[in-house]
Write a protein that binds this DNA or RNA. Sequence first.
DNA 1: GAGTATGATGTAACCGCTTTCACAGCATGG
DNA 2: CCATGCTGTGAAAGCGGTTACATCATACTC
Lengths: 334, 334
Amino acid sequence: MATIYEVSKLVGVSVATVSRVINGSTRVSDKTRQKVLSAMQALDYKPNPIAQSLATNRSDCVGVLVPEVHGPVFGAMLSGIEAELRDAGKFTIFATGHNLEAKEREAIRFLNTRNCDALIMHVEALADASIHRQAHNGPPILIMNRVVSGLEDRCISLDNEHGGYIATNMLLEMGHREIAYISGPLAWGDASDRLAGHRRALEEHGLELDERLVIESNFHEVGGSEAMEELLRRELPFSAVVCANDEMAAGAMDTLRARGTSIPDEVSLVGFDNAPLSRYLYPKLSTVNYPITEMGRMAAHWVLENVYGQSGTAIQHVFKPSLVMRASAGRSPN
Amino acid sequence: MATIYEVSKLVGVSVATVSRVINGSTRVSDKTRQKVLSAMQALDYKPNPIAQSLATNRSDCVGVLVPEVHGPVFGAMLSGIEAELRDAGKFTIFATGHNLEAKEREAIRFLNTRNCDALIMHVEALADASIHRQAHNGPPILIMNRVVSGLEDRCISLDNEHGGYIATNMLLEMGHREIAYISGPLAWGDASDRLAGHRRALEEHGLELDERLVIESNFHEVGGSEAMEELLRRELPFSAVVCANDEMAAGAMDTLRARGTSIPDEVSLVGFDNAPLSRYLYPKLSTVNYPITEMGRMAAHWVLENVYGQSGTAIQHVFKPSLVMRASAGRSPN
DNA sequence: GAGTATGATGTAACCGCTTTCACAGCATGG
DNA sequence: CCATGCTGTGAAAGCGGTTACATCATACTC
């Protein structure tokens, strides 16, 4: 690989001048610039990014910390992030935290050693205090799907309350009155916000939330199945069920089908996330769209703007989910 | 951040000695080593990886090129790669090629500028010649899901022929004789290999492949739907359908259900990949397992062994798929 | 025409680490 | 007792860039 020295020798200028051409920062006479550029071309010269990093203390790398790489949500998020950063010539390095505090902490340390210029992180286990610490000591960070107080301008999140609201509201407008709810772990902000939206929708329709129709589960398919079984065991009437994510809805659907319950004729079902699986279920699942790819893109934009100084679009910190109507929800049979 | 100089000053030795301690390569007296180590601890010193890279001409980064980041197959593959590399303290940088030659080429260039120590790539559009060129000029490469002649020891792939074979064989053993086949684009090696396996299974049972029962499609859900429609239009009898991937099987299932055909009572359906969606379909899809996460891990192992000189497990270049029996396939009704 | 601002370029230090080479000190063998 | 061979360590030259500062023409001002 050619170095900057060979270029400078070929042209007969100093390396400083070549560097100036590369970076386009200071003025260089047009004639010199042209000569340098063609020499660079002739030698197929590419600046060594490692050396540049060392000299500038920037790495052009953005670290991304997600719970998992695969899966509909994180995969889509990574996809959005990578696309944007790549367009801007930045590198995406990722690490997984598995929603475990120790792992998340270790992953951050790992990414820090790489001198990332910024960190985009989706962490669940890490406490706010740790995030604050990281925000003040390390490189700039952007937090996904979580609002950390005091760092609101560093967060990009979904309006989960609104999502919960529109799901239930839709069912109410279809005539349902007895609506069960299968929730995620209420210790997590997204789960409790979604439930809050559900409650608000009910209240706006003059109904009160019946705690007995709410089951706290774990966002997993099996959890959804079990939650539905528990619900049936309680022998309370309901004509619709809102599930706090699509996976639990899939589990709930399985259980209902095993009982021979017809969806949506006897029970309507609504999910949350609009994960790919929601289209594969039968009947296809009505759900709340989670624009995670766009949110990933937005995170990348934030970094490009705030770390690399590229002017861009305005940053949207809170995204509104929207309803996706499919076959699993219909009018109330009553 | 503390530098190696501060450590050396604190201990009263030269930076060379500190470096020796860091790298553990040359002998250092125990006493000195201990002093250096505790000084490093006291200063919370971490070697700057960028500087190390510049000096050693290694980046500790492995580039991964995939068509897409999300999706069941690539997400799972990335997951396996990241887990292994991370354990070894290596960084994973990824880029997407979207199966377009120009994009793949550009992504490789992009990763090359980062001085990756190795490239793991899953490319479809790039011609063998280009891959050979890259293999000889750039950093070591490992090719996923494709066998490039002359570079077999650099490839990790699935025995697609075997996969096609076991799928059809299972149906034959269940008494099916008229088996339709919805294929992926036959220009792609994996698609044609799967079909070849299908053909071999038939032949081993004394049957000949009926070309009219084979439809070439595109590996997508809609394609599967349309292929099934075309198949039905041909009005040939068949009691089972093998689809070359799960997505097409999902589409085919939709079409059959729309016609009121019962699965598996009237028609058995088998997919390929064992993607998550296969479990969400109704009835749950019997399919051929594609151990993509393990293959990703293996790719990482190859890199660790051949590039970083870590001794490890033996490298398995060809993986055997296996059958996953679920509800969508049953005995022939005849 | 002297003084001065301005633009283009060169010089050299520096980023933080690795590694070759030299050398001192000490044990060993004849 | 001297030649020899190890061991442990230091000095210094890179790795390939960036950039503060110096320098030198040149153009402009009065």
